[in-house]
Design a protein around this nucleic acid. Structure first.
Lengths: 201, 201
DNA sequence: ATTATCTATAGATCTATAGATAATGC
DNA sequence: ATTATCTATAGATCTATAGATAATGC
């Protein structure tokens, strides 16, 4: 029953990390405090020395979790390539099958819509930063054009991931991922005069 | 305490319709039997003469709910126009703000991914029919091309709707809807040689 | 006689708190 | 002395069932 400050800090971090994983796997409502504590190797009672409420844990866990799987494009000098690689990873079968270590927005957008103000405000900033990051690496003659394309790209990424996870027929799920990967890359990697349509043929 | 056969049938339908609405508003797990029954004007006890389990109600409610807000494109001779109109309606502020009467897939894709086999199998068919319907009204030189575009379109629709609902900043939410509406229509209404990129400028 | 509905409740589960215990840290 | 953790439990909520009640329908 040790309880040094450093041990508490370590436990706190493990609680947050475990919660962040389970939330993405099971949704914002389906994760129970007792289960998280048990997984960390603790019991329910100690929880409230770490958080005032369950909601506080959820907020902290969401804050800790990233919206993107891989971090910022490592090489900013090759934006298109990075974006294409990012799209391939985001819409990979691996990402689809591992929501716990995957994109926060993709896993929880539906839940957040029904959630409270605090959580929605937090999600808003996550979505905003995602959109801006994508807009930054997209080709576009104007900022506005790049931002619009980024909205389409982000929406298609999130939607295709959600659909591929919802569908139980694996080959159909694979088809969705592959189709969207292919068409979406042409939005990002080609210049203004080339076409999603042409690329898709 | 009337209980004629016709009254039972009518009650059954009202239970299903009410559940279908609340499920889309609150998610697959957050709707309680007692609340649905109360809204219909009945009490909990009677529920199990209508359904063997809560899961049976959910399945029937999902079956009853449509994935699309407006029905099939009324005029098949103008596919592009219909699709554009459908995109405008799907990504409207009205649809965003009324999930209860809106698209089933858009509201519940995230929940379905964590759900049981029965519900996922049902959702799979809903997604499949949605994809096929969109592919049918999309221009494309080959069936394969149209199907790929349909996957992108459906993903972007579902993703943009989810993001617009998750975000609490209304002008940001409007921006997402508008951007995706605009770019998505160019995928459907232009021929193969024109471009999403060009249209977006 | 059958059955659609009601009231009441058993059993499960979840958040949050109360009080005990034992290691830390002044 | 403080406090991080534990065990135990109160209170809320939800699914499902039991048994009573009263209208239907043969």
């Amino acid at each position: 029953m040790g309880h040094s400050q450093s041990e508490k800090k370590s436990n706190h971090e493990r609680i947050v990390r475990t919660a962040a994983k389970r939330l993405r796997e099971k949704g914002l409502e389906a994760v129970a405090i007792a289960d998280v504590m048990k997984e960390v190797g603790l019991t329910v009672g100690g929880f409230y020395k770490h958080f005032d409420s369950r909601d506080d844990l959820v907020v902290e866990a969401l804050r800790a979790a990233s919206w993107q799987r891989s971090a910022q494009p490592a090489d900013a000098s090759e934006p298109s390539l990075s974006l294409a690689a990012f799209i391939d990873e985001y819409l990979s079968e691996k990402h689809r099958d591992r929501p716990g270590s995957g994109c926060l927005i993709g896993a929880l957008a539906g839940d957040v819509a029904r959630s409270n103000k605090r959580i929605r405000a937090l999600a808003t900033e996550k979505v905003r930063s995602a959109l801006e990051l994508i807009a930054g690496v997209l080709p576009g003659t104007t900022k506005e054009s790049a931002r619009k394309k980024a909205a389409l790209t982000l929406s298609a990424l999130v939607g295709a991931l959600a659909l591929s996870r919802a569908v139980s027929d694996e080959s159909f799920s694979d088809e969705i991922l592959q189709s969207v990967r292919e068409l979406l890359k042409s939005v990002g990697t080609t210049d203004e005069s080339s076409s999603v349509g042409a690329k898709s043929l």
